[in-house]
């Protein structure tokens, strides 16, 4: 990929930092002066992928804009754990309005900033909207689509943990097939979430023809920072969909957060790519191909697939989804399979 031009061996492009790199090639997260946009003391669960993803993204955006940044935040875990009165963890100007209106709130902020500039404010203050998958793919989708369609100067970031975690792990339109949630219990003839539903929001974003759409995971910081930085270099509507494992909701060990994100990408279940004006312009290739079982097994939300009698057919259907992604996006290096 174009943004992995740095070739180091021991310290690779995969670690957060690298003492051997030139300062300007170092990641934002490696910096001693990083802004910690989401400060310590927040009340996210242990090993929260969303807290991690949000700090990665907002820190990168702060770097990219010289801290001239405002964030609007949907209701959800990220909002609740970061701003319970009387403590906020945010170091950026930040507003929470509602669950389903964040893209629109951001549009309003961007409009205000545009007028301020017109009126002589020298600062170029940029706007990010952020929310979980529920606030993005479901309840906030109308406002999101409107923001995209108008090509408002907003970067919308979805932190996708594949269910309504804040309310107690209910299904969202981002919940994958077979996954157990509180509203898709592993009971009956088709346990867990059903197959054949759900919404591919990055593709829908692309269908709006907006300048930039990307997916990323908390397992590849450099890629994530590159995409946020790139997004902030572009005007108009932009969308980044970040895969953020939820230890609590997925029934996974808190220390496996980054690992699960990595396995989701390496298995092909979560394709990592970027697109400009509706066309895919880059994909993150799979580096160490793994079968989907390796990703599914550490998560109790899939435990019903691996009981005394494993649901071989269901697992095969999930593998087929991964395989389809691999084909569609060309996720394997030529000859790597």
């Amino acid at each position: 990929m174009s943004h992995q031009e740095i070739k180091f061996y021991q310290t690779g492009t995969f670690t957060v930092g690298n003492r051997l790199l030139e300062p300007d090639q170092r990641s934002v997260q490696a910096s001693m002066e990083r802004t910690n946009s989401l400060n310590s003391g927040h009340r996210a669960c242990q090993g929260c992928g969303e807290a991690l993803g949000a700090r990665y993204a907002i820190d990168a955006a702060m770097r990219a804009t010289g801290n001239q940044l405002i964030a609007a935040n949907a209701t959800g875990c990220l909002e609740v754990f970061s701003t319970p009165y009387p403590e906020t963890s945010w170091q950026v100007p930040w507003i929470h309005s509602l669950f389903g209106n964040t893209a629109a709130v951001a549009t309003g902020i961007a409009a205000a900033m545009k007028i301020k500039r017109q009126k002589g404010d020298r600062r170029d203050v940029r706007v990010i909207a952020q929310g979980g998958d529920g606030g993005t793919t479901d309840i906030g989708f109308g406002c999101l689509s409107g923001m995209w369609e108008r090509n408002d100067d907003v970067l919308y970031i979805c932190y996708d943990n594949e269910a309504y975690m804040n309310t107690g792990v209910q299904r969202s339109s981002a919940t994958p097939p077979a996954a157990r949630t509180a509203t898709t219990m592993p009971v009956g003839p088709e346990p867990g979430n059903v197959f054949g539903q759900g919404k591919n929001v990055p593709r829908i974003a692309m269908a709006h023809g907006i300048p930039y759409v990307a997916t990323a995971t908390v397992a590849d910081l450099r890629d994530l920072e590159y995409k946020v930085t790139k997004a902030m270099s572009v005007r108009g509507a932009r969308y980044i969909h970040i895969f953020v494992p939820c230890p609590l909701g997925w029934g996974a060990a808190s220390h496996d957060t980054v690992k699960l994100a990595r396995l989701a990408k390496e298995s092909g279940l979560f394709p990592v790519f970027e697109a400009e004006y509706g066309e895919v312009t880059g994909v993150s290739k799979i580096r160490r191909p793994v079968p989907v079982e390796e990703y599914l097994k550490p998560q109790r939300r899939y435990a019903h697939l691996f009981g005394k009698q494993p649901h071989v057919e269901t697992i095969a259907k999930i593998q087929a989804i991964a395989d389809a992604n691999i084909r569609r996006y060309g996720l394997l290096e030529a000859g790597a399979h």
Binding site: P86, T88, S97, I109
Partner: peptide, 12 residues
């Protein structure tokens, strides 16, 4: 909402 004086608006 101003980067020069960042506050969090809309706390729980």
């Amino acid at each position: 909402l101003d980067p020069a004086e960042p506050v969090s608006i809309g706390a729980m």
